[in-house]
Design a protein around this nucleic acid. Structure first.
Lengths: 182, 182
DNA sequence: CGAGTTTAGTTGTAACATCAACCAAGAACA
DNA sequence: TGTTCTTGGTTGATGTTACAACTAAACTCG
């Protein structure tokens, strides 16, 4: 019967008894393979640069970045977890390590004693300020530069649609500029 | 001086002495935040479903899928690593585990005695055939369904451009259908 | 107010990934 | 023919993440 493609299940239909499956057509498959490829390779690129130049993983960078942007440089752990697209256990471990390095401090929330607030320390601030330019540079180089304005918008639109499924609660962070006021 | 956004380094320019940095504008930031969010959350979604229904991680699925699609259900380790967007050590460990479970077999390549060929066993074939429909369903649900045809094409185009930077050697797999012959 | 439930978070452990070190086979070349 | 370099891969240590179990605080409601 010959070739069968199951990357995600291209025309495995010939093999499975399940005719209810709507396999991917060629365009869909191309898009999907590219999405996986980017999702798998991009983190490595980011981690490598940040590690080398700033001693941070990309996830640690995100934690510090979100805090740096929060009022009072402080965020509830749960909220921080949402904004960094991570599970709470993961965040908890990472913040513990960052606390050990003096980049973040944790305090019990005054209004809710089970909750914890994470705050960026001055040392943490300095680390992220130092790390940001190189990171931006990497992001430009690997994702924004190869795209023209139209493509950036189209990418953004498509990813936004995917996020409604992958992040139904809308936890992922958004650019909130435009309120302009500094 | 007020708010500063460093997700990737929005207008941290006010703080850093470095005026050479071209920070992200609002559209770029939106696209970037969404890309990270998808890249971070999607693997979890895929892993959860595959794990629950088929006892495979998404990476293991990819390994089996690429083999299932290869001539003779066999691929050189190096090539398999490229096609699954992974480093060789990672692949090596995973294939060892898959071999232990009887889903893959490794043999020294006849033409080059340092090389290793990984082959999908019959048991492995059955596993992937059983896993594919549920996986396709998940992919549809979370990424393809929320997109219309135009958006799929646009996403594909943008990701293709990014891949030229993130995967300059073009190792990531491509849909090779259209040769139509089975 | 007290029993049950939900929310917030931590922790231990097991699975997994990364990294550096290593080895063997082949290629280049002197 | 014997060095040296490169390629193809494995392995073990070390670090990170996921999952499940757990604690404690806060709500809910009879």
């Amino acid at each position: 019967m010959g070739q069968v493609r199951v990357h995600v299940g291209a025309n495995l239909g010939a093999v499975t008894a399940d005719d209810e499956v709507k396999w991917l057509d060629s365009d869909e498959m191309t898009a999907w393979l590219r999405l996986i490829a980017v999702a798998e390779r991009l983190p490595g690129v980011l981690d490598t640069q940040l590690r080398r130049d700033s001693g941070l993983t990309h996830y640690e960078y995100q934690v510090l970045a979100m805090l740096s942007d929060a009022p009072n440089r402080t965020l509830r752990m749960t909220q921080l977890g949402r904004e960094t697209n991570a599970t709470l256990p993961r965040l908890s471990h990472v913040v513990k390590r960052l606390e050990g390095r003096g980049l973040v401090a944790r305090t019990v929330a005054p209004d809710d004693k089970r909750a914890n607030d994470a705050t960026l320390t001055d040392a943490g601030w300095e680390v992220i300020v130092a790390a940001a330019p190189g990171h931006v540079q990497t992001v430009r180089e690997h994702v924004l530069d190869p795209l023209n304005g139209r493509q950036v918008a189209a990418l953004s639109e498509a990813l936004g649609a995917i996020l409604t499924k992958v992040d139904p609660k809308g936890d992922a962070p958004q650019d909130r500029r435009g309120a302009g006021t500094d």
